[in-house]
Simulated scan of single mutants.
Amino acid sequence: MSSVDSKILAIAEDELAAAQESARITMRALHSAQEAAEASLLLDEVWNVGRAGTTQLEPGLIVALAHAGNYVAGAFDSEDDSLIGVTIGFFGEPLGKMMHSHIAGVRHEQVGRGTGAAMKLHQRLWCLNRGIRQMTWTFDPLIARNAYFNFNRLGVNALEYFEDFYGQMRDGVNEGQASDRLLVSWRLDLPAKRTLLGEDALGRAVHALDLGEHGEPVLSEVPRSTEVAAVRIPADMETLRGDDAELATRWRMAQRDAMAGLLADGWEVNGFLKQGVYLFTHPDDGDFAEDEISTAEEAGPRD
């Protein structure tokens, strides 16, 4: 693994320190069996797996991942040193150059204080200290807060849309829904080079997916000559799943058709507007650098 420039490391250290101070937390690596057991319980709480009789990650697996040199860390409250967040990743191909962030979660009552951002910055510094310049992860593209955090705050690139990536999941968050995921990449040693489109771009965008009069998904064809394509999603998919599972499933299938279709046709995600809209542009429009760039807002449940 090649070393990373000291200036880049210094910036990463400063940004992590500021994020930890703002969130009032301290990030630490987890190693012991006791820490792994507490981390496992926290993840089960975040994903509400109790009634399913399963667990997100067994403590023994967490210990093994940490012992093998992978990334296993926790966010601890600065006042009482309680564990409020956990994030875990492992090495992927190309070996020595990439880490895949598998899971990250923050206790529900602690969401909103900036812990998710601090966890990602801790992951970044951990990777850079080991000469790793790229991180990937998947997330549910129907969760608006995570989409905004990933694309607009971190500057990730969308790589691929996966249909039902994990198969049927039994946790309380994902149960009964197809586990479609969007794979994204974060280039850790370079700033994002994308020029994000603003809200004014909606005026010239053609919607591949939009919100109907009664909250239903409406699909449309997007001509290749279009400058900007848009994919709108519900503002709060998690609540919709609980209120109307059938409508939530319709949104999943519609987003799959729209987003997977656009990506397959050569469109790239430019960013995500707070109104709940993905914006797509053509790669030859100059909005993306050749390098693969940049996971999630406040870590409520997410991959």
Rank of each mutant, 00 (worst) to 15 (best):
M119H: 06
W126P: 01
A254G: 01
V228H: 05
M169P: 06
D244A: 09
G276C: 06
D5Y: 03
Y71T: 01
S40Q: 01
L240C: 04
V206S: 11
V228S: 08
L273S: 04
A192D: 15
F280S: 02
D14N: 14
D284H: 12
G112F: 08
L41W: 05
L95I: 12
Q177H: 11
A17H: 10
G96K: 00
V106K: 04
A144S: 13
E79W: 05
Q110N: 12
P141G: 06
P141C: 05
T226R: 02
V218A: 11
E15I: 01
E160Q: 14
R256F: 01
Y166D: 08
E290P: 04
G53Y: 03
C127M: 07
M237A: 07
P283Q: 00
R113N: 08
S82T: 14
K7R: 15
A254F: 00
K120V: 03
G242Q: 13
M169D: 02
E163L: 13
V111E: 10
Y71S: 00
G198Y: 08
K97H: 13
A12E: 04
N150I: 06
M237E: 06
G85I: 05
R250Y: 00
F272V: 11
G176L: 09
H108G: 05
Y148I: 14
D81W: 03
G300D: 12
I8H: 10
E221S: 12
M259L: 15
V86Y: 01
